[in-house]
Structures are given as C-alpha cells and as structure tokens.
Design a protein around this nucleic acid. Structure first.
Lengths: 271, 271
DNA sequence: GCGCATCTTTGACCTGGAACAAGATGCCGA
DNA sequence: TCGGCATCTTGTTCCAGGTCAAAGATGCGC
C-alpha cells in the first residue's frame, strides 16, 4: 500500500534547507505553514480550520458548519512518498488536504503516467472516483501531509440537507473541470515555455491565496514530475527554467523559485 | 447570441449526402437517429426519451422520473453553426443534448481555441459554468440539434429531494473529470497516431452505446476541429488518417469513416 | 453548367523538444 | 571526510509534427 516502509528517511524533510536565507521561513514546509500550526490538535474542525473558506464549507453559515465538522472528524497523516489511494482502489471517501502537498497520477502510480495535478492545503482529492466507484488515479504525498477523510455517502446526505454545502461541492467539482481544461489547452497548444510559465503562475497564485508569498516558493516536486504533469521531459523543464532565469524573469536555485519579473512572466503566457 | 442569423442556409443539413450508399441511412444525421424520432413531439419527457438511461435519470425510479420530467420541460432547437452559449455568458442552466452534435471550445468561439470536447445525444453540457457563475466555454452545434434546458437551481433543488438524481449528477460530473484526464494524458504523451486512434475509438464506442454502428460513422466535425481538439494541425490529422487507411486499419472517405480492423486500431493506443 | 467557398490531401522544408549522454550538485549515511 | 545516490544541468543529435504551399474534392448558389 505504501511505497515506502515507515522508516524515517523522510521524516525530516528539507533539513538541507537549514541555514538558508530568512525568507525561507515563510515557505511551504511541513513544519511551518499556518494551516498546520495545530497539527497536533487533531480535534480542530472545519470551523476552526484556517482553510475553511478555501475548502468545502465556503459560504456555509455557522449553524451548518457544526454539521460539517462532524463529517470531517477523521484525519489521516500521510508521510512523504506514501500513497493515499491507488488507481483501482474502491471509492468510499474524498479527502481534503489539511496540510502538505500531493500529486495525483494516472495508472498505478508506477512513475510513468501523466500527473494530473498537484494538490495543496484546502483542496479536495478523489472526486474522480465517483463515476466508476473506483479511484481513477493514485494520490501520493510529496511531503508529510494530513488529510480529512470525508465519507462520500455521508457527504452527499449532508449536501441534501445543507444547500450551501451542496453548492460548494458542485462548485469544487466544476472548478476542477475548468482547471483540467485550462491545462488541456496548454498541453494542446502551448510551447514548453508557456507551459512552465503558466505552471509557475498557477502555483504562485494558489500559494498566495493560502497566505504564502507569491513571489518566492519551494517546489515540492522534481523536474521530472513537473515534466510528467506538463507533457515535457525533465530536461526540457530544466532547460526552460534556466532560460527563464537567464532572461531575468525568475531566479531558480534547486527547488527554490523566486519570481523576479511577474510582468514578464505573465506576458509569456497566452490570453 | 447566435453566430448566424436565423436564415436557413444551414436548414438543410447534409443535402450533399443525398444519394450516397445505403449504409448512410444508419448514420448519425439530424434526420434519422432513433433518439430524435419524436423530434416533433416536443412534449416527450425524460421518461419517454430513448436516452434516459444514458442521461440524467440513470437509476432513477419511475416515481421520481415524473419530477425530473418537469425539470426538463423546456426544449431548444439549435441550428448548425449556432451557439448554444458563449464563454462568459451568465450561467443559469445546463443542457442535455437530445439530438444532434455539439462542440465546446474555450474562448469566445472565434475558432482559435482548444476544443474541449464533442457532445452527442444523451450528454450534458454546461456544467463547467457552475464554478464561476459564467460559462467557461462556448457550445456550438455541429448539426441541427435539440437540447433540454435544465435550470440548474431547480436541478439542485430536486437533487436534494431525489438522492438518485443527486448521485446521477455527481457521477456525470465525475465522469467528465475522468474523461478530461484521459485526454490530458493523451495530449501529454501520445503521438499523433495515438491521439487520432483513441479519438476514433472513443467516438465509435459512444456511438455504439447509442445504438449506431460502431464500425462506420460520419464525422460531424472538420479535420481542423479534430486537430484543435487533439492538439494537432489539420494537416497532421489528414495525413494520419491517410496513413491509418494505407495500413488497412480504417477506410476514410471524406467525413465517412469505416473501422476495418478494430483490433489493429486498438493495438495502437497505449494501455 | 459555372464559379466560388469550404474542406481535404499531399509535398517540401524547418524547428522545438525528445532522446541519449555526460557531468555537476547537494544530501545522506558510514 | 568520503562515497553513493538522487536530482539537476548542459551538450549533441535526430525526428515528429508544425508551417508554408499548392492542388484536388465537393457542394452550393446562380
């Protein structure tokens, strides 16, 4: 089930970043993000969660929030490189990312297939399992993470009682479709540079929505994973990042990316 | 709203196909498909519609079917090349294709953007508008078509009362996500031949689900539209079709496609 | 029937990114 | 401190598919 034994090789993520520049403190790590300050207090519910206006309960009033709290009682910790579920697993629940970072990839997750997306705190994973009753992709943690387990039957039942939750769910599903299609257009028409640029801008926006700096962040995924997401080889990803740096749009240092000229960057992506 | 004035330039679709071979009779045209035999009797409801187990009411029992019938009272005829909605239009309803054929494309539908999909009878269009309250793409009829107009607010309300409808809706949305991701993988990794092949197989399957011959059908879209769907140029689409024909897998004659060697075809597409 | 418009096919050439290869870098455990 | 390993960078070569161009098909209106 897990890709790695529970040894702690990955239990000290990003130790290598010790002693970096101060701004690193603000970056998305499994130690420091605001969303996980109460990582210990597992009782913290939707109503307490700093993500609640990004996540499911968006637009739900206080009264109904209590009922959603009950829905999301169960939590699960996922260590880096562990899989939350695999393609083909029977579908029972969806998962809200509370903290950490995931990738979802087609196939069994053997590292060959397309990566359909990267999910961060406040995003819902697993909705694609509804249609067939089995998960259509595999979800793997890119860093130590925590999710809320949301039994889908219960969620549907509650959605019937709480229109705001119903609407919220529909909006989330719809948003996924829209995002997938943006990516589709990118893969269909975009050059390598446009893909990378759009990817960085998207990441930057999502991070800033969560209170992180928009202009500097740490990539949680390898070049190869970026490539498998964008339909490029890892070499092309690397080259393109180097080129963008040479042109002064960004500054790259391993996984650390700083967006130097957001204007220039945005100018490269169509529409 | 519509891209063409209500003149009847397109009111006699496929006249050119007069006098073709007999097998054409079985093909998907706006005149002959089983789904539209009662095209005149606009009162025909979900419960009467030959598509009802492909469409929304899948799995809904007779009692609740009556309530869904009310939901789908309104119909609309869309002539060829007319747009059902444009990207940016405010979102109020989703549409179930009763008869005909649509494409959905990003942007204003000016003919430059990615075509996100082709929809045939029994499929739902417009769900991507939920997230932002505005349609995210444009839907254009590729032949004279008819849709059920389903006010989404009413549909949500009914879904709260009828769990089977709720589930059906969720399944449909989920299915769209899964399909988008298949396409994504194709655009990310597939060669031109794999894309075209997968496209033909998909069309063939969907047509046969609707009672048409799986091995011979008429493409409702141009090479250019296929290309814009698959991230290829129209020249590459044409060349690839020619090559598949030369290799004996298919037989192409303008828009008419006959799948000669389904095995060989399926063997070309990965997984 | 003729001319026009749209769509399709095919050819010739060029290029962006894949594939292959060879270091470089940084992390980790011994 | 060193050596192993994963990851990343950079160079070189090659080809699938894009681009440009031109010529068939096909159907439509006149």
């Amino acid at each position: 089930m897990n890709t790695l034994p529970p040894e702690r090789r990955q239990s000290q993520p990003d130790r290598r970043r010790r002693g970096r520049r101060a701004s690193d403190q603000r970056l998305l790590t499994s130690k420091m993000p605001p969303a996980s300050r109460h990582l210990g207090q597992l009782k913290a519910a939707c109503s307490q969660c700093s993500l609640h206006e990004l996540c499911l309960p968006a637009g739900v009033d206080m009264l109904d929030l209590a009922r959603i709290d009950q829905l999301t009682q169960k939590r699960q910790r996922i260590l880096r490189h562990q899989t939350l579920y695999k393609a083909g697993d029977p579908f029972h629940s969806v998962y809200a990312v509370r903290a950490g970072f995931f990738k979802t990839e087609g196939g069994i997750g053997d590292g060959r297939d397309q990566i359909t997306g990267f999910q961060m705190a406040g995003e819902l994973i697993g909705l694609d399992g509804i249609s067939s009753g089995r998960h259509a992709c595999s979800a793997v943690a890119l860093e130590d993470s925590e999710v809320c387990i949301i039994p889908f039957n219960e969620m549907e039942a509650l959605a019937r009682a709480v229109p705001a939750l119903q609407r919220s769910l529909h909006r989330l599903m719809s948003r996924e479709m829209v995002q997938d299609r943006k990516l589709l257009a990118l893969l269909g028409n975009g050059t390598a540079e446009e893909r990378i640029t759009a990817f960085l801008i998207d990441l930057s926006q999502r991070l800033s929505q969560r209170g992180y700096a928009a202009s500097e962040f740490v990539l949680r995924m390898t070049r190869e994973e970026i490539g498998r997401h964008l339909g490029l080889t890892l070499e092309t990803v690397s080259r393109t990042l180097s080129r963008l740096q040479r042109q002064g749009a960004i500054r790259v240092q391993q996984r650390l990316v700083r967006i130097v000229d957001a204007e220039a960057l945005a100018g490269r992506v169509p529409a």
